[in-house]
């Protein structure tokens, strides 16, 4: 464990909690893409299947349980508890455009052709595109509440910190996970234009982010 990965995990947790609290306190999921949240729940489910078979550390196990619980709680709030506030017509991204290539690629490019390994690879590739429905919704509605942009900021920052973690681990312990690194770089690249908007619009105290 290194500071970059710990900071990344904390950012990830903060992002998930920001979103969950926003939905719970505003009792509304307007402006939130339920599809992205479903994809994140699938990412955690397919990645943490070894939750009961592999024990790395108490931290690792606890964080996996927390991420699974919070992501399913978020999906529950969107599609069950506050479903009357869910504007599905804005959440119109075609998930098959993401799932088909990701499933195909995880069968082609993986470390071992075993169910667990393919599901892990699927979760890595899926995570890199899981935010697309949310970013698509923001471009479609042309705006995002500032709390939603803070959620996206921390979510994007977490994988950027993981890249720093991979650089650090490569130089200190020769660790290199090609699939995770390539997918993590792609994932972070998707956030770059958002980061620019976030810094220029939201941090300048504009409150709501309105796209040009």
């Amino acid at each position: 464990m290194n500071i970059f990965r710990l900071a990344g995990d904390v950012c990830h947790l903060v992002a998930i909690i920001i979103l969950l609290l926003k939905i719970w306190r505003s009792r509304s999921c307007a402006g939130i893409s339920g599809k992205s949240q479903v994809l994140f729940a699938i990412v955690f489910t397919t990645r943490y299947l070894d939750l009961f078979t592999v024990f790395i550390s108490p931290y690792n196990t606890i964080m996996k349980v927390v991420f699974l619980a919070l992501s399913y709680a978020t999906v529950y709030l969107i599609y069950m508890r506050f479903r009357n506030t869910f504007n599905s017509e804005n959440d119109s991204f075609r998930l098959e455009f993401l799932l088909v290539p990701v499933i195909g690629l995880s069968f082609l490019e993986n470390y071992a052709f075993t169910p667990l390994e393919i599901l892990w690879t699927f979760s890595i590739f899926l995570e890199s595109v899981a935010i697309m429905p949310q970013l698509f919704m923001i471009t479609k509605t042309g705006e995002a509440e500032s709390i939603t942009t803070h959620y996206l900021f921390f979510l994007g920052l977490y994988r950027a910190l993981y890249i720093a973690n991979w650089v650090w681990r490569y130089h200190t312990e020769g660790f290199f996970d090609q699939i995770a690194v390539v997918s993590g770089v792609v994932q972070t690249i998707f956030y770059i234009d958002f980061f620019y908007l976030y810094v220029t619009k939201v941090l300048r105290g504009r409150g709501k982010m309105t796209l040009p």
Partner: peptide
């Protein structure tokens, strides 16, 4: 590239 260690990352 050096082989990857078991999945110890979240």
């Amino acid at each position: 590239f050096p082989l990857r260690t078991p999945k110890d990352e979240l």
